[in-house]
Simulated assay, not measured.
Amino acid sequence: MAETKRPAAASKPAAVRPAAKPTAKPANTKAAAPRAVAKAQPSKGTTDNAKSKVKSDMNDFKAQATDTVRAAATKGKDRATEAVGSISKLIRDSAGTIDDNVGKQYGDYARSAADMVEGFASKMDAKDVDVLAEDARQFVRRSPAVAIGAAAAIGFVLARLVRSGGKDA
């Protein structure tokens, strides 16, 4: 038999890999990273200055808010004192009519009530807002049920006044 020659397989050239890019790493990579982080963080003196500035600004804001609240409370106290004084005057003025219609004894009750309301108004006018707030706290601690009832009654009266005030305008 004749031997057939197989054509010699062309040898495949070895796969050529592209040349790897040179990776240049810094000699000390661990030391470079902390320096970058350290540069991003503000220095301790800067942080302390920022903290003290924020504290100072907050204290200024607190003082300004306290002054505003105290001024509003003083204005409210003055209005309340004026309103209570007006109620006292109204009761005293109606005492004469009560004398004529119901009797002198009931007119005297009205005058006595006017004196008590007027005394309350003068005591309220004489006290500072801080003292009034402390008195209110003590009253609520001693008798919370009465305080809640009084707050509900005052809220009801104020709501009625606001509703009737809107119709007149």
Rank of each mutant, 00 (worst) to 15 (best):
Met1Pro: 05
Met1Thr: 07
Glu3Asp: 13
Thr4His: 07
Thr4Phe: 04
Arg6Gly: 01
Pro7Ser: 10
Ser11His: 04
Pro18Arg: 02
Ala19Tyr: 01
Ala20His: 03
Ala20Arg: 04
Lys21Glu: 08
Thr23Glu: 14
Asn28Pro: 06
Asn28Phe: 12
Ala32Arg: 04
Ala33Gln: 12
Pro34Glu: 14
Pro34Asp: 08
Pro34Ala: 11
Val37Gly: 12
Ala38Tyr: 12
Gln41Ile: 15
Pro42Tyr: 08
Thr47Tyr: 04
Ser52Met: 09
Val54Cys: 01
Val54Lys: 06
Ser56Asp: 06
Ser56Asn: 08
Asp57Gly: 11
Met58Leu: 12
Asn59Ala: 14
Asp60Pro: 10
Ala63Met: 14
Thr66Gly: 12
Asp67Val: 14
Ala71Ser: 03
Ala72Trp: 07
Ala72Cys: 03
Ala73Leu: 03
Lys77Leu: 02
Asp78Tyr: 06
Arg79Phe: 07
Ala83Lys: 02
Gly85Glu: 08
Ser86Glu: 04
Ile91Trp: 03
Ile91His: 00
Gly96His: 13
Thr97Phe: 12
Val102Asp: 03
Gly103Cys: 02
Lys104Ile: 13
Gln105Asp: 11
Gln105Leu: 06
Gly107Ile: 05
Asp108Ser: 07
Ala110Phe: 02
Ala110Glu: 01
Arg111Ser: 11
Arg111Phe: 06
Ser112Val: 09
Ala113Tyr: 01
Ala114Val: 00
Met116Phe: 09
Glu118Tyr: 10
Phe120Ser: 13
Ala121His: 03
Lys123Thr: 08
Asp125Met: 04
Asp128Gln: 00
Ala133Thr: 11
Glu134Ala: 04
Arg137Ala: 10
Gln138Lys: 11
Phe139Asp: 10
Arg141Met: 09
Pro144Ser: 00
Ala145Trp: 13
Val146Phe: 08
Ile148Leu: 04
Gly149Tyr: 15
Ala152Cys: 03
Ala152Asn: 09
Ala153Asp: 03
Val157Ala: 13
Val157Tyr: 07
Leu158Arg: 10
Arg160Asn: 12
Ser164Thr: 00
Asp168Tyr: 13
